[in-house]
Computed example of a mutant assay.
Amino acid sequence: MNITTSITPRMRLLRAALLIAAVAGLLLGMWAGLVRLGWPWPPLAPVLPMLHGPLMACGFLGTLIGVERAVGTGKHWAYLGPALVAFGVLLALLGMPGNAGPLLVTLGSAIVTLVLVGLARLHPANYTVTMAVGGGAWVIGNLLWWLGWPLYVVALWWIGFLVLTIAGERLELSRMLKLTPTVQRVFMAAALLLCGGIGLGLVNYAAGTLGVGVALIGIAVWLGAYDIARRRLKAGGQARFMAAALLSGYVWLGIGGALFLWHPGQMAGPYYDAALHSIFLGFVFAMILAHAPIVFPAVLGIPMVYSNRFYAPLVLLHLSLLLRVTGDLAGWWPGRLWGGLLNAIVLLAFLVITVTSLRPRAASR
């Protein structure tokens, strides 16, 4: 199928601008994270270190998912969602008074969620409902951020957003395996437990993290057992790469859940860092690496040539994260510090490989 035929130059420009905004959020978020880790670099903006989480969860991941959903729905108004999210993050960076940035991010996430709810109404199914609930978790998390709740509480809602969105997409693809109703009910039970855990975190944070931890382990085990990725490992080329990336991400999701169980109620510090980045880096970014050869060409309307180069950032991501988490858990500061820096370098390498794999000349023919 030719993915470029139905995309006008103006629409391609809009999508490219939003992707650039998402990448800018990633770059600034990585810089903020390294400053927070202890690297003696200028923060670029006074509020930058405190916006590490919002930049990554909303500025990068939220904008990226919003663009992907807008492309999927085919509605021009849907692009307003990721645009508001990106602009809201910019206002937060500028330190605009009145929490204008978080408010715009909240409004943008609500528009993205409306797209997901519309999909669930058109195609009622477990996977569409799961993704819509994930969008709702993002809206609530952003609303809490706007209202001034602690970011460690907000982060649970952002975890719910990303995990439910990704797991819902994988559940959709598992339809071809014709899973039994019992297997699907197990998935939904784990998803409901995740929702219950993040909700409980509003009144009892420690108990909430326990529930989230159990739910993440359950979802990770379910995905490892029933996702179609396990059956695609025997395939070659891009299919095998995607399967390896997905399955490795599920391992990190389970590790993140286990760390929440091991040290529940952590609000900061090395154990919190290990748990959070096992999920956001090990799981979420493994999913991004897995889907990059499909998502970026579909969004930009530009063909991409897959090559085994994509394995390099995948393997190095896991090795550098292992170094960071080991440093966190063992109290080994250099391991944590250098692991974080290597995380950022690996993500930069992934961006370079992705961009250099695009073939814009082929799209213009």
Score class of each variant (00 low, 15 high):
82 P>E: 03
207 A>V: 08
306 Y>D: 06
236 G>F: 04
99 N>G: 01
204 N>G: 09
128 T>C: 03
72 G>C: 07
359 R>F: 00
3 I>S: 11
67 V>K: 05
340 G>R: 06
222 W>C: 03
17 A>D: 03
346 V>Y: 06
273 D>A: 13
198 I>Q: 09
34 L>I: 05
312 A>V: 14
305 V>R: 15
313 P>Q: 03
208 G>T: 06
222 W>H: 13
114 L>Q: 02
93 L>W: 08
166 I>M: 04
325 V>N: 02
210 L>Q: 10
67 V>N: 04
169 E>Q: 13
361 R>A: 15
283 F>S: 07
308 N>G: 14
249 G>I: 08
192 L>M: 14
40 P>K: 06
295 V>I: 15
238 Q>D: 03
331 G>K: 05
349 A>T: 13
113 T>H: 08
245 A>I: 06
345 I>N: 00
108 G>Y: 05
98 G>A: 02
197 G>W: 02
61 L>N: 08
121 R>L: 14
143 L>P: 09
73 T>R: 14
86 A>T: 07
53 G>Y: 12
43 P>Y: 01
188 M>N: 10
224 G>C: 05
326 T>V: 12
110 A>W: 08
305 V>W: 07
293 P>A: 09
237 G>N: 06
50 M>T: 11
74 G>T: 10
327 G>S: 11
71 V>G: 02
5 T>C: 12
352 V>T: 02
101 G>Y: 09
61 L>Y: 12
170 R>E: 00
153 V>G: 06
147 L>I: 00
226 Y>I: 06
305 V>A: 14
81 G>H: 08
5 T>Q: 15
125 A>H: 12
342 L>K: 07
63 T>C: 09
118 G>N: 05
281 L>P: 01
336 R>P: 01
149 W>N: 11
209 T>L: 03
81 G>K: 04
340 G>Q: 02
253 L>C: 01
47 V>C: 07
303 P>K: 10
68 E>G: 13
265 G>H: 04
115 V>P: 00
97 P>G: 12
133 V>L: 15
270 P>Y: 07
79 Y>F: 15
35 V>H: 14
146 W>Q: 11
276 L>I: 14
80 L>F: 13
83 A>C: 05
288 I>H: 01
144 L>T: 11
127 Y>D: 13
354 T>D: 04
84 L>F: 05
329 L>P: 02
326 T>G: 14
207 A>G: 12
70 A>S: 10
315 V>D: 04
28 L>N: 05
123 H>N: 14
231 R>L: 15
127 Y>L: 00
27 L>A: 14
11 M>C: 01
9 P>K: 02
290 A>N: 10
186 V>Q: 14
312 A>K: 07
185 R>M: 10
94 L>I: 00
214 V>Q: 07
318 H>R: 05
229 A>K: 07
44 L>R: 00
266 Q>W: 01
278 S>R: 11
346 V>E: 05
29 G>M: 00
278 S>G: 12
256 G>T: 09
